[in-house]
Design a protein around this nucleic acid. Structure first.
Lengths: 201, 201
DNA sequence: ACCTGAACACCGTTCAAGT
DNA sequence: ACCTGAACACCGTTCAAGT
């Protein structure tokens, strides 16, 4: 049922009536198969999670975490409308848990305790969510992109007393999502490794 | 104008018509003062940013970053509806940039280059966004909370082959947002410091 | 310049009626 | 068991008409 809906979601004026028309059926027939619109959206999000491919493991923590998260990122970028749905929804189902399980497994395999794994996973996951939200071009950036020429902007910022922002206009103007993502993950993993090193000595 | 609207937002069935009724005015009068609903929502989000208090600086990077981000977190938690709006919107205005500027300043003051500061800020900010989204209880958690008793759940997970998740049911069941947040920030800053140490030697 | 109200083209959902 | 269509209580927005 929902498989075909995923495609129409591209046009994000998704409505029960539009779906029904697209299915060549009476709008109200849908309610025989689904509780309400909210449940339908949950279904779309869950299906997205279900179709995520499993990562191939290399044994190296850094690359494995990056790869694992990149599966999510790539899929999210491919279906940004669905991703936006998923990111702003609490699903509370089993489906998402297998993703959690895999993440925890990665950390456990690298010598972290269950506690550390949970906290580490949550940190990485929060970062992932924030990153993807930015990539999908929902989500705040506070970069003031889309405001005319660089030099004009720089002057404007200096006048406004935003010295550090004006100093970095050029860096703020561009954002390589892949680079920013791996950078952040590296940061987190470096922190995690140092933390585990500190506790074992 | 929008000041009073912020209060009604609590009931998140915000509609132009409801606002107008609440203002004792004809629904369509609003369009004399505002472009459309989207602009109104932007306005609400921007006003939220404007009312964020300025952080007091201590000079210590870790505590300053945590404090700075906590201002955002606290305000977001206080007005979760507004925060949800802000987090899923690209504002592209000057208002958010002062927040960016302050963040960059923090990193610059601690010996980071403008490039490092921008990347560092983005990493911390993405993490902040993901965290707040989780706190505001939008946003995916994949923790399978709200599913009955702990032991039943553990068994269920083990059956499903989610060994690591079942191993950590107790940790997954609770989530101290403050703790998770500071933990993640510590991770990121540790990573940043190590990175800057590596490049200067 | 601002307000008003009727109108347009939509929503999600309910419910009695059909097959 | 499933579909249907009329109906209800809403939306955001336009526009001609008022003051």
């Amino acid at each position: 049922v929902a498989t075909r809906l995923l495609n129409e979601v591209g046009a994000e004026q998704l409505s029960m009536r539009r779906i029904a028309v697209d299915l060549g059926v009476d709008p109200m027939s849908l309610y025989n198969h689904i509780e309400n619109k909210d449940a339908l959206l949950d279904g779309i999000a869950l299906q997205f999670l279900d179709t995520l491919p499993a990562p191939t493991l290399t044994g190296d923590l850094r690359t494995d975490v990056v790869n694992h998260a990149n599966i999510f990122r790539r899929a999210a970028r491919r279906q940004s409308q669905v991703a936006a749905l998923l990111l702003t929804r609490q699903l509370g189902s089993m489906t998402g848990l297998s993703l959690t399980d895999a993440g925890l497994g990665l950390l456990r395999a690298n010598g972290f305790t269950p506690e550390q794994a949970v906290h580490g996973f949550r940190a990485i996951f929060a970062f992932l969510v924030g990153t993807v939200l930015r990539e999908v071009s929902l989500g705040p950036t506070f970069s003031g992109q889309n405001l005319g020429g660089l030099n004009e902007r720089r002057d404007e910022l200096t006048c406004a007393g935003l010295v550090h922002a004006s100093e970095a206009v050029h860096q703020l103007a561009v954002c390589d999502h892949d680079e920013e993502f791996t950078f952040g993950v590296e940061l987190l993993i470096t922190g995690l490794l140092q933390l585990s090193a500190a506790t074992t000595t």
